[in-house]
Design a binder for these strands. Structure first.
Length: 539
DNA sequence: CTAGGGTTAG
């Protein structure tokens, strides 16, 4: 049967969407937890591979009727749904966390003294809101476990594993994985171990990531093609395609391979500018009886785009045609974007024309790129027209489209436009992310709009967007350049208090500015903080 | 998450 929390998320999702994007829906529904026979049968379009071009008038009623039949199927859900409306718990909980307790234990104590009760929705939201803030995240997670009648879902465990990995707390991360395993309830899945491997790879612990893969069966997870691809992808994306290749060599004879396995390597070699290795992998792929597909070719096209070798890009498009491999929206996006960035705007627009004549439909990401290159070329009016036109074509702007529009509005100091777009996003139920807020924050620093800055910080919090080290760096730097040193110092302190390691450049600019203004006392304070920063965990 | 993101320079 469909897990309750999952149903609730689905419910919230369908309640909030004006323009359904099927991808997250499928992600929500299509997993082993949800495929049991007792559940009302899912609408068939959810499982169909054609996730694009489903229109709203069709999807929403279909989903709504499924949700209704599900409610009948499990009447207890009605109660949960009505309690969804009480968003005061999250506010009260957040207020307590604002006290910035120094350790998770103290968070637990504070929460024990409150009359809050844990629920899946509440914990999920807190973990999102504090995903870059370990003390409150771990505190709430630990506290919720002690609440009677509450049990963490596997997804919440997975989120916590991910948060610990992101914060480089690898020992704690492993402890938690073992704790999940001890529950003996199939809590550790490939989703869990995927996060583990990815975080280890990102932390440069390549060997440990491989070890995690080797030991998958200890947690009852199968070492299949999907698991191996996950590991290889994690390694290849973190600048270590060589490690990915080693994994490939070691396991290729005892693990089933698929096209994806080879594409991950091709992509990795291309990204690392090792074209010969990429070509060798392509040959090896053929030897294994796999035919290069659009993904394989697109990786090569991207490589030549990076090299600005557009003659070679054309050749590859031709080769694809010969081989009967149709380029898709991704392929066209890459080619157009690269031409636009290389200031060959007319050639870029030709790609758009070619795409249309080839019968390939643009998607939101494609339009975002088009808007980006037009704006970059100073053609703001055309960019705006495309932004309006895409909706008429039935493609709703996504977070990247809005971020692109907001970035350029900020770059041209069109404050009002930028904020209106942010508001429009909300109306469209399109959630902003850190990259959406970054240009807005930067603009506020530059123009010394402290009230707007404050508004944005609250906006972020309300949208569960947790500030990361990069965003703190942007704030400190921007405020330094605008002479708002007091605020710059307080963000620096906040950053350090979250165990983030400031970059040298961030530290340097702050010290320099404090020196310039002869603020000796504040400078000493910052130096003291910096000396207490724990050096990055190594080996 | 097998491929498409502009990020931290004036």
């Amino acid at each position: 049967m469909l897990a309750k929390h999952k149903f609730l998320r689905l419910f919230r999702y369908y309640n909030s969407q004006k323009n359904p994007n099927i991808k997250p829906l499928r992600h929500l529904i299509c997993n082993p937890l949800c495929t049991a026979t007792e559940s009302p049968e899912l609408p068939s379009w959810i499982k169909s591979s054609d996730t694009k071009n489903l229109d709203e008038d069709f999807v929403i009623p279909s989903l709504a009727s499924w949700v209704e039949s599900y409610k009948l199927h499990d009447p207890s859900l009605a109660i949960n749904i009505s309690s969804e409306k009480t968003d005061t718990d999250i506010d009260r909980l957040s207020k307590i966390l604002k006290n910035r307790y120094p350790s998770p234990d103290e968070v637990v104590q504070a929460l024990d003294g409150s009359c809050l009760s844990a629920s899946t929705g509440l914990v999920e939201q807190i973990l999102r809101r504090f995903s870059n803030d370990l003390v409150p995240a771990v505190g709430v997670f630990t506290w919720a476990k002690t609440q009677t009648g509450y049990r963490h879902t596997p997804e919440i465990y997975n989120s916590m594993v991910d948060i610990l990995g992101k914060g480089k707390k690898f020992d704690l991360m492993w402890d938690l994985v073992r704790e999940m395993d001890d529950l003996n309830d199939g809590y550790v899945t490939l989703a869990t171990m995927g996060k583990v491997m990815r975080r280890l790879a990102r932390g440069g612990k390549y060997d440990e990531a491989v070890e995690a893969f080797r030991g998958l069966d200890k947690f009852g997870v199968t070492r299949d093609a999907m698991a191996m691809n996950l590991l290889m992808d994690a390694l290849a994306k973190e600048k270590s395609v060589e490690h990915a290749y080693e994994v490939f060599c070691e396991f290729k004879d005892c693990t089933p391979l698929n096209v994806g396995t080879f594409n991950i390597l091709i992509y990795g070699w291309c990204k690392a500018r090792k074209l010969e290795d990429a070509e060798r992998t392509m040959d090896e792929m053929k030897k294994h009886g796999f035919v290069p597909d659009v993904v394989s070719y697109t990786s090569f096209i991207e490589h030549y785009c990076r090299e600005k070798d557009f003659r070679k890009v054309d050749e590859l498009f031709m080769e694809m045609q010969e081989k009967g491999c149709k380029p898709n929206a991704v392929t066209y996006t890459i080619a157009m974007h690269a031409l636009g960035k290389a200031k060959q705007i007319n050639e870029a627009l030709e790609v758009y024309e070619k795409m249309k004549s080839d019968g390939c439909l643009p998607d939101a990401k494609f339009y975002s790129s088009l808007i980006f290159i037009l704006s970059k070329a100073g053609r703001t009016k055309d960019a705006n027209e495309i932004f309006e036109d895409m909706k008429k074509q039935g493609v709703m702007p996504d977070v990247l489209t809005y971020t692109t529009m907001i970035s350029f509005a900020c770059e041209h100091s069109r404050e009002e436009d930028a904020l209106k777009l942010l508001q429009k996003m909300e109306e469209d139920s399109c959630k902003p992310d850190l990259k959406t807020y970054a240009p807005l924050l930067k603009m506020c620093c530059k123009k010394r709009r402290m009230k707007v800055l404050n508004f944005l910080l609250i906006h972020m919090f309300r949208n569960d967007v947790s500030i990361d080290a990069g965003t703190y760096a942007l704030l400190v730097r921007g405020l330094c350049l605008s002479g708002k040193l007091e605020l710059a110092c307080s963000f620096f302190e906040e950053m350090v208090s979250k165990e983030m390691v400031p970059m040298n450049a961030t530290y340097k600019i702050l010290i320099e500015e404090l020196n310039k203004k002869s603020l000796g006392e504040a400078k000493e304070q910052i130096e003291k903080l910096m000396s207490q920063v724990k050096p990055r965990e190594s080996v």
